[in-house]
Computed example of a mutant assay.
Amino acid sequence: MKAISKFILHTILGWKIENGFPKEPKKYIVIAAPHTSWVDFPIAILTRMSEGIMVHFIGKSSLFKWPFGYFFRILGGTPVDRSKSNNMVDAVIKLFNSKEEFRLGISPEGTRKKVEKWKTGFYYIAKGANVPIVMATLDFENKTVKISEPYYPTDSLEKDFDNFKSFFKNIKGKNPELF
Rank of each mutant, 00 (worst) to 15 (best):
K60C: 11
K60I: 12
S61H: 13
S62W: 03
S62D: 13
S62M: 07
L63E: 08
L63M: 15
L63H: 11
P67A: 04
P67Y: 01
F68C: 11
G69R: 12
Y70T: 15
F71E: 02
F72M: 15
F72H: 14
R73I: 05
G76T: 11
G77W: 01
G77L: 04
G77D: 09
T78F: 12
T78H: 10
P79H: 05
V80D: 04
V80G: 03
D81V: 05
D81M: 03
R82V: 11
S83M: 01
N86W: 09
N86Y: 05
N86L: 10
N86K: 11
M88I: 12
M88C: 09
M88K: 08
M88L: 15
D90E: 15
D90M: 13
A91G: 10
A91Y: 10
A91F: 08
V92S: 03
I93R: 00
I93H: 00
I93C: 01
K94S: 15
L95D: 14
S98F: 07
E100I: 09
E100V: 09
E100A: 07
E101K: 14
E101A: 14
F102V: 08
L104F: 04
L104N: 03
I106V: 12
I106C: 02
S107D: 09
S107I: 09
S107P: 10
P108K: 08
P108Y: 04
P108H: 06
E109K: 02
G110M: 02
G110T: 02
T111W: 06
K113P: 02
K114R: 15
V115T: 02
V115I: 06
V115Y: 01
E116D: 14
W118T: 11
G121R: 00
G121W: 01
Y123H: 10
Y124F: 13
Y124D: 12
I125H: 07
I125Y: 06
I125V: 14
I125K: 07
A126H: 05
A126W: 07
K127L: 02
A129V: 12
A129Y: 10
N130S: 15
P132M: 10
I133F: 02
I133R: 03
I133P: 01
V134M: 06
M135R: 00
T137G: 08
T137R: 03
D139E: 01
F140E: 07
E141D: 13
N142I: 01
T144P: 00
T144K: 00
T144Y: 00
K146Y: 01
S148V: 04
E149T: 11
E149K: 13
E149P: 05
P150R: 03
Y151D: 10
Y152K: 10
Y152G: 07
Y152D: 11
P153D: 10
T154P: 03
L157W: 08
L157I: 07
K159S: 07
D160M: 00
D160L: 02
D160K: 06
F161C: 08
N163I: 08
F164T: 02
F164P: 01
F164N: 00
K165P: 03
K165S: 10
K165C: 05
S166W: 00
